[in-house]
Design a protein around this nucleic acid. Sequence first.
DNA 1: CCCTTCTATGAATCGTGCT
DNA 2: CAGCACGATTCATAGAAGG
Lengths: 253, 253
Amino acid sequence: MPQAARFQLHHGNAFHLLPSLENESIDALIADPPYCSGGLFASDRTRDPVAKYEQTGAKTSRATFDGDQKDQRSWTSWCSAWLRECYRVLKPGAAFAVFVDWRQLPALTDAVQMADFIWRGIAVWDKTERTRPALGRPRNQAEYIVWGSKGAMPGRKGTPVLPGVHREPVLQRDKHHLTGKPVGVMQWLCGLCPPGSVILDPFAGSGSTGVAALLTDRRFVGIERDQHYHQVAAKRLAAAASGVVLTARETAG
Amino acid sequence: MPQAARFQLHHGNAFHLLPSLENESIDALIADPPYCSGGLFASDRTRDPVAKYEQTGAKTSRATFDGDQKDQRSWTSWCSAWLRECYRVLKPGAAFAVFVDWRQLPALTDAVQMADFIWRGIAVWDKTERTRPALGRPRNQAEYIVWGSKGAMPGRKGTPVLPGVHREPVLQRDKHHLTGKPVGVMQWLCGLCPPGSVILDPFAGSGSTGVAALLTDRRFVGIERDQHYHQVAAKRLAAAASGVVLTARETAG
DNA sequence: CCCTTCTATGAATCGTGCT
DNA sequence: CAGCACGATTCATAGAAGG
């Protein structure tokens, strides 16, 4: 991307657009792909994500999204394919971080290694107790970030140590996407690369990764295939570039 | 075990002793097997565990232990074997919880499913920031608990919901074993079964699971093959049965 | 402005019953 | 019979509303 630009947001499928990015041009990958979990039966996988993930009787409704209908086997090879393409555009030593839920975690660690990345650990996003309860069993209150690097990852003197567990609830004002991540969570992960770096998110959604990148003085390249969310992301990024953080209510219209 | 006994502690190999336990006699399994991680190279696997896990210059030295020398492939099938034996002794619907680190997590989720258990989630023990730092990357500050059940797990009315993430640092006074878990962590997991239940730990180590079980009004069956740790566990369990909690210094001698 | 009360909600899961 | 669709259910917390 041009030296001067602080962000670029592409509209289209990641598989079509990633090949147009230059080799070794990106400093870090932060991705939040569709999890495709809970798909024991075809009916669960083909169900509208809004119906699937949103609590019965929820009043505020959000736009639905595609691409959440693969079974585990297909999901794994699909992940390894886009990860391999990201591998190409990342600089040697670049860090990556990919969100996943507990059910798909083992599939994702396979996929990143199939794509030649070095898997270096799991970071935890603790969503706090504000999650669905189940009597007599541990709450399902975390999401996971599989992280690592393209080849050797030289120690960065002066770079701060990141917490391995980040505790932050999902607030309504931050939820621009049905499965959107709080900006604070993404700011935490932006610490994987130093200020000035270019961060890639091939499944940008409502653009939280980009907002966090701009707020923490990184640059951003995003791809989003859904028309509606592409527009939401464009609005949020433009605002974030001037230091303004929009709430979900402000982008909903 | 006898109705009256609050705990039993066997000395010997889990593979030899598990077969002597009755079918469907246990209410829950809580296990902390050797992780065998960092075993990418044979030199790491054959290194003395004390040198491997203890920070350079650590002053309080702990006895070494065996059984930490398998590669990932062998470790997976070894786990599925003892898990299958545990499956037999567990009552239908019983819960299980097995500790693991990030590196072996995918191997363990395979192993529990190979042993016919239903994998239902991952719980997180957040060891807080008091862990080894690494510049520019997320701290490795969590251990994971793969949990689930033997067959269907009917909702237990009146049983409280457990937190999915437990935050507790490792204190020296609690570290009776080189890889020992704080009693508070084990008390949290004891919530997987109601008071009065019998909890099995086939790798009892210094007995923290049993201490937690007794303190939370559960009963305990433990197996430990190491002579030294068997004795430590016996002391701690006897004390815990009278409500006394021993510190690591008190059991070290 | 602060404290209390109340209400909305969550990257599900389970049992039931239909096809 | 087996596979699959459907709806009832759970409670800690955030945030709004009210005093």
